[in-house]
């Protein structure tokens, strides 16, 4: 089966999804920076909390939102959640990954089949990647916190 790598237009959809999440849910914009290729020499972007969506259908790979504890605590506070425990941070990091992946279906259509999120602490290593292309990282800043959306997808031609 033939797969192609992501192009600029595909990546733009995910940058827009990041903006939409922070603006709608927290009423505060995030600064979304330019996406870059995560080649072998890049530092790993695995953070305190990591929400992972496995992707299938006409696609192969995963979409991961990685964020520090401080950011997720403040996101929870901004949306009115009183409890800021580790469990709640795991819940919200998975839900953020879910929202950003789901929104990308506006561009890719329902062929982008997404799994329920799995959320992992920094201490659990990332899974072996299923996509073969080079992943893109989209860095963002919200309030004083830095996070990353890593999009590692092959798209069926």
């Amino acid at each position: 089966m033939n797969f192609r790598a992501l192009n600029h237009e595909d990546i733009e959809v995910f940058s827009e999804a990041i903006s939409a999440f922070f603006l709608n849910m927290t009423h505060e914009s995030a600064v979304v920076r330019t996406a870059y290729l995560l080649d072998g020499s890049s530092a790993p972007l695995w953070s305190d909390f990591n929400g992972v969506i496995d992707v299938s259908g006409g696609f192969r790979g995963s979409i991961t939102f990685s964020a520090p504890h401080g950011m997720l605590s403040q996101v929870l506070q901004a949306i009115g959640e009183r409890e800021h425990s580790v469990d709640r941070c795991l819940d919200v990091v998975g839900e953020i990954a879910n929202m950003m992946s789901g929104r990308a279906r506006r561009h890719f259509g329902e062929e982008l089949a997404i799994s329920p999120p799995s959320a992992r602490l920094r201490t659990l290593p990332p899974s072996v990647p299923r996509a073969t292309g080079v992943p893109f990282a989209i860095p963002l800043r919200w309030r004083a916190h830095e996070a990353n959306l890593v999009v590692h997808l092959d798209i069926r031609r």
């Binding site: 999440f21 709608n24 789901g102 279906r105 506006r106 890719f108 259509g109 329902e110």
Partner: peptide, 27 residues
């Protein structure tokens, strides 16, 4: 109330019995 924001998904949900659709993220 779902993050899945393509039209086909919304139409299919309605055809199966849903009465409305709200996309995540929402205010």
């Amino acid at each position: 109330v779902s993050a899945l924001s393509d039209k086909a998904t919304a139409l299919r949900a309605v055809s199966k019995g849903a009465h409305g659709f709200l996309h995540k993220p929402f205010s």
